[in-house]
Simulated assay, not measured.
Amino acid sequence: MRGSPRHERILERLRRDGRVDVGELAVALDTSEVTIRRDLDALAEQGTLRRVRGGAVSLLMRGEELPFSLREVEAAAAKNRIAAVVASLVRDGEAVVVDSGTSGLAVARALAGRRLTVMPLSLPSATVLSASPSITLLLPGGTTRFGEGSMVGPITESSLAALRFDTLVLTCCGLSPDDGVTAHDLQDAAVKRAARRSSRRTVLVAESVKFSRTALATVCAIEDVDVLVTDEEAPPDVVGRFREAGVDVRVA
Rank of each mutant, 00 (worst) to 15 (best):
A194S: 15
E74S: 12
R196H: 11
L43E: 09
D39C: 07
T35H: 06
F68R: 15
E232F: 02
E33H: 02
F68H: 13
P140K: 11
G3W: 09
V20D: 09
L89P: 02
T127M: 06
G104R: 12
G174W: 06
K79V: 11
A131L: 15
A162N: 08
S122Q: 04
D185R: 11
L228P: 03
S125Q: 13
G18W: 02
E148N: 02
V98C: 10
R243K: 13
V205S: 07
A87D: 09
R71H: 05
V86C: 08
V181Y: 06
S132F: 04
E65S: 14
P236K: 12
S4F: 00
L168S: 08
S134N: 11
S58V: 09
D99V: 09
L11D: 01
L186K: 08
S198M: 10
P120G: 07
D188G: 15
L216Q: 05
R19H: 12
V181F: 03
V181G: 04
S69T: 14
T102A: 06
A76G: 03
E148A: 13
I36D: 05
V225S: 07
A161K: 13
T102N: 09
K192M: 14
G101K: 10
L123R: 09
L129S: 02
V22S: 06
E74I: 08
L59I: 01
I135L: 04
G142F: 10
S199I: 11
G3P: 00
V98S: 10
E65G: 12
G63R: 09
E148Y: 07
R145K: 15
L170R: 08
C220L: 07
V249I: 02
F146M: 02
R241Y: 02
P133N: 12
H7M: 04
A183H: 13
